[in-house]
Structures are given as structure tokens and as C-alpha cells.
Design a binder for these strands. Sequence first.
DNA 1: CAGGCGCTGTCAGCGATTTGTCAGCTTGAT
DNA 2: ATCAAGCTGACAAATCGCTGACAGCGCCTG
Lengths: 221, 221
Amino acid sequence: MRLLLVEDDARIAADVSTVLTGAGYTVETASDGKDAWFLGDTEDYDLIILDLGLPSMDGMSLLKRWRANGRHMPVLVLTARGSWAERVEGIDAGADDYLPKPFQFEELLARARALIRRSVGHGAATIAVGAVTIDTRAMRVSVNGVPQSLTPLEYRLVSYLGHHRDRIVPPTELQEHLYGDDFSRDANALEALVARLRKKLGAVAIGTRRGFGYYMGETAP
Amino acid sequence: MRLLLVEDDARIAADVSTVLTGAGYTVETASDGKDAWFLGDTEDYDLIILDLGLPSMDGMSLLKRWRANGRHMPVLVLTARGSWAERVEGIDAGADDYLPKPFQFEELLARARALIRRSVGHGAATIAVGAVTIDTRAMRVSVNGVPQSLTPLEYRLVSYLGHHRDRIVPPTELQEHLYGDDFSRDANALEALVARLRKKLGAVAIGTRRGFGYYMGETAP
DNA sequence: CAGGCGCTGTCAGCGATTTGTCAGCTTGAT
DNA sequence: ATCAAGCTGACAAATCGCTGACAGCGCCTG
């Protein structure tokens, strides 16, 4: 984990840095606003610890400018104990957490852990099979990077096949998944659906094993 | 946005609930640990506000059990002003933020906003999508800089879609977050609401993906 | 307390899209 | 070569979402 500590008081910076390093983080330090701005804007940190009241650019503007530039890393703001109005401003400027000075190092560490823990695990759930990519979060499917417009039923079908890639899925299983317990449909409905899908995703995207079912990906001959 | 407030003191619960509702949230309340446990474990909330010291199960265990079950919605913990050691414990148990009582309602709101926007992945308090700008702090929406007067329900809808921009939001999810557990309404109520909103924000502000849901922003065809 | 107003849910009808069905065709296994 | 499984294009039916109108409700004002 890589942290940026923005703090102008050299002694505090050294102390905090020591504690953080001791806790297993890689710590870089910026002592003035310009450095901080540059580093925060160009480098990737897992967390930035930002002291308000810096020379050459105040911390609040720094934070606002990072956010305006679309930087989403977690930021923990350190500040002198202030009024709640000040805290509200800091939070709305895009701070993720706020710690009044003086603070216990344990509390700093706990909050740092919490922020880092929260920022991971936002992984995009996408499945890629051949040229086809399924973004399950956005419910969007693309072929060679080109987004396709699928109907709800079509999407459910690729999604199911994608989740069960490299496996032959029997038609009965697909019917069950697509239509639930509603038996009324002709067996051909599924075939027609597959045909329409292949037209959008490319003929090779979905394979047929005669007598067994459909599949995406690789299956033993 | 749908919130769960866990608070055993009925008067505090009523006050806080009123404030939150006024700020445009859908608020549900649990007054004891068992209810809270069940709701937090089975329902989808954008934020849980948790008072420590409940009858029948204390807040800290509640939080730990949710986390152990893999629930990672943001949780804001309310507690009597305590030692930093207690705060550290709360944070390590999985709390996302911590607010000592007594507190100013503005600060509660600011922290709630911060947690919600962070959990959906952006840093700033205003959300801009196309011509539409949502100021979550002032609860104002403008189109091309021109402020619009929205009804409370309309605001909740844009707000939710804005927070989840570039993502298709299924109608069921919207119903849940607009109406809470009161699911008595006709599906058409939502459609009517969208129609009214489009009349104010412009037809292109909110997109429809037939069979999937509504969205703001880019979800290329 | 009455009246008015704004908000929101319900209804009914309309297009447009999606999906099932049918009929004929292609393909692969034996 | 034969036959059944699977494919495809066309058409019809079902579904979904949009809209304008209306009504009930709560709230404010006079």
C-alpha cells in the first residue's frame, strides 16, 4: 500500500511517517501544496493524508482540484479541532474522512485501514469469452469492444452461458433458467433466440453440440 | 436513497428520521437489535445509521455480524462521546464513519452524503451528467445552469440515477429506494414520475433501456 | 373551516419493441 | 442416402413503456 502524506511541519511529518511505515505502508511525503498537487494528480496512491493549512496552496483547494480532475483516491484530512461547519465544508469538498489534531496514532491507523479497505473491492464484474465481453454490472455486452444492444431475454441467455463458460448447457436447463416453470413455450423458441443472438454476437460466439446443448468458450471435442 | 436508522430512543429516532426525510432520503427505522439485524441482512440500503447500545443486541456485534455475512453497505455509527479506543474498535469492526453524540444535524447530513457518494464511487458533492447538475448539498438540480424546481420524489429519483450514472438501474431497484418497503404501488407510478421528470429536465436527460431500466449518462448502445 | 393548490397514484389507450410460432431449409450423424 | 436435430426468415401475438387526464390526499391560506 502506497500513501502520500501532505504535511508542512517537518517534525510531525517525520513522526507520522514513521508510524505509518511501521504499520507496513510505503509512505511518500509532500511538504508544500505544489508538490502535493503534482503528486496527487499524477501518481496513484491508495490513500492520501492531507493536512489543511499548507503554504502556497491550501489543503481544501487542493482537494477540490483533485476531485475536479476526476481523482477518486481516498483522502483523510487532518486539521486543527474546528467547528462542525468547517468539518461539513471539508466533507463536502470531497474528503473521505476527517481527523482533528491532536490525534492518537492508533486512531489514525484505524481510519487509514478503514479507508483503504473500503476503496478496494470495487472490481468490475466482467466476463470475457472470445470476442465477447459481458459487463454484468452495466448489463452490457460488447463484441471486440463494440457495444451491442441486446433485448432482455437475449441478455439473460448470454449471461447464463457466459457464467457457465466452457461447459455444454442442455436446452432444458436454459429453458428453465429463461422461462422459469412456465412450460408453455415451444422448444423452437430457444432456437430462434439463439439465432437472433448469433446474428448480433457473431456466429462463432455460441457453439452447438448436436444432441447436448449450447456453449460459450472451449469444450473438449 | 434508502436509509436504515437503528435507534432505540423513540424521540431521537423520530427527530433524526424527520431530518433525513426532509433531506430527501427514504428512511426506515429499527428500534431493537433483532429487527435491525434482519433488515440490514436482507434488505438493500444505501446507508445504515447505527446507534450503539441497543437492547437485545449491542450495535457493535450487529455491525460485526453484518460484515461477517459479507454485507458492505456504508455504516455510520452514533455514540456517546467516548475515548479514542472505543472509536478505534468501532472503525475496525467495520464502521465507515463515527459521529459522537450530541451532534449537529448538518454534520450528520454531511457525513451521510459523503458516505453515500463514496460508496458509489465519486468524490464530489455535485454530480454533473450532460446538461443536468445535481447539487446534493443544497438539493438543487439545474439544467444548463438554470435551476429547476423539482418535487421531493422527483429529486429523489434524479439523485439516485445521478449517483448511479452510467449504469442501468432496474425499476425494481428504483421502487425499493424511492418507496422503501412499501411496495403497494402500481408499476406505472414510476413511469409517470419519469415522464414528469423528463418534462422538466429534457427528454434526453434520462434514458430508457427497454426491459432493463433507466439510466443517466453514457451507456453506449 | 372552506377553498385552492401542489403532489402523486391510478387508469386507459397508443405505439413500438420483443418474443413465440410456423413452415421450410440446412446440416451432421449413421 | 436418410432422417432427425437444429437453423432461419416471416409473421403474429404479447408485452412494455409513454402519455394525458383525472382523482385523492395533505397542506397552506384566507
